[in-house]
Amino acid sequence: MTDGPVLTCDGLLKRYGDRLAVDGVGFTVSEGECYGLLGPNGAGKTTTISMICGLVPCDAGSVWVAGRSINARSVAAKAAIGYVPQEVALYPELSAAENLRFFGRLYGLSGAELARRVGEVLETVGLTDRAGDRIEGYSGGMKRRANIAAGLLNHPRLLVLDEPTVGVDPQSRNSILETVESLRSAGLAVLYTTHYMEEAERLCDRIGIIDGGKLVAEGTRRQLVDLVGGRDRVRVAADGDLAAFAQRCRALPGVESAEDVGDAVELVAADGRRVLRPLIEAADACGVEMWSVEVAEPDLEAVFLSLTGRELRD
């Protein structure tokens, strides 16, 4: 166990010919924290985590994992990292258990310890019943879960997941996200790359937005939204004197505007959730009967668009 962040990377730079794939990226990930690298395809996410895992040498910058420096020549230091690649990097002709035993041996496990650990990670990803089946017979979601299991064998301090839900059905995706949430809760530092903002919003404590090889912004979801001046939109569907209700709403603290749109009043507020109670009181005061309230917070898609001028899935 080390004090401070499990992962510290600083000034990472990687150039392929004339193309700068990663340009000065740096961030930290602490124990029990899930850090999301959010960006479109080709933004530099995979190159960044490849440098972090010592799979690609950095042209500049440094990576420290659990207090040890990582580079392309590191061997022993990689024991602290569990890497789950984007593709299902398992032998399709072997069973999940055989694949896990194989990777366990590469992590230096053997004998009873290896058998125990294989059983544990199969349990974690919910594949115990199918452990003896060949990977090639698995569904896409099961393959992904087995792929994650192989990254957990070594009790890593840092789990690096490179777009682990690409191409899986919604049910399997949910299962994978639940697994990641439980691992984070168990104290693992998780570095998660994705181009799905819903996943980043659900899983990640902090998010780094990466585009064109640069980390353009970093913070919690709220901080990122605030960074671009994002405002919540609140829609109150109601019956009664909606014009009077809208006028009363405009006077509430935190409400920037309120409009009567016929069957509802639409408000813009800095923090939609904080104005809910005053809204109900204002509706009572105006004799308005509320049917429903919807709070739409600005999402990371909007943040990304604002920061880069491009859609996340461009």
């Binding site: 593709e87 990097a89 590469l106």
Partner: peptide
């Protein structure tokens, strides 16, 4: 399949 790369992500 990315197996070679994954092997290199371990202490191998």
């Amino acid at each position: 399949l990315g197996l070679t790369r994954r092997m290199l992500s371990t202490p191998t």
